[in-house]
Amino acid sequence: MNILVCISHVPDTTTKIKFSENNTRLDTAGIQWVINPWDELSLTRALELKEKSGSGVQKVSIAHVGPASTEPTIRKALAIGADDAYRVDTEARDAYQVAANLAEVVKSGSFDMILCGIESSDYNGSSVGGMLAEFLDYVSVSGISHLDVENGEVHTTRELDGGCEKLIVPAPFVGIVQKGIAKEPRIAAMRGIMMARKKPIQLVDAADKEPLTVIKEFEPPKPRPACKFVDPENPEELIELLQNEAKVI
């Protein structure tokens, strides 16, 4: 069984987000780029499965859509332990175009399980995994919080609104992964970083697909009014404010 983990390249969460060119572009100056947190968890779980005896997982590859400047993020994923990587050499423009390009990677190889994080921390659309599955006409399981392979059979738990379901999923499929899938993201060790330099990154030609959406500009969230402080000796005042000023309780 071969696993393909799709990786998005996003600003580190603690980075201050700023925009340039009249708020139409992300200002990339000073941004620390990281692997999208959910993708990092997917990769961690994929590697755990590969190491698990009897799982039948032979190879963990990664796929990414982005120009050459995003390669450090791919190298990071290889350093964590992925065997090889595919990069579609084009700018990521929206979820639809990214999914269409990832579909080309899937078609070019032989993958049984394709993992995507439930969302990316930049555009938060929660869309790429489901779109990829539809492009491929594959089964998709969304909101996976547990994933295991036993004797070649894939077991997942998917979170629903108000419960969860344990499923057996036939390969090939697209798994859309959320928190819980792995405890902590795995960190690259020195040996992994050295080895990553020699691991292959295969370039894939971009699919002939245009994005469906156009971002006109970015807007900062509405500023919140300054905090009104209540005397800690007198919390009754807070209840009074919530009842009569905010009128929310």
Binding site: A99, G130, S142
Partner: peptide
Amino acid sequence: KALAPRLSVR
């Protein structure tokens, strides 16, 4: 989240 992206492509 499970449905909308599939529908979008479809």
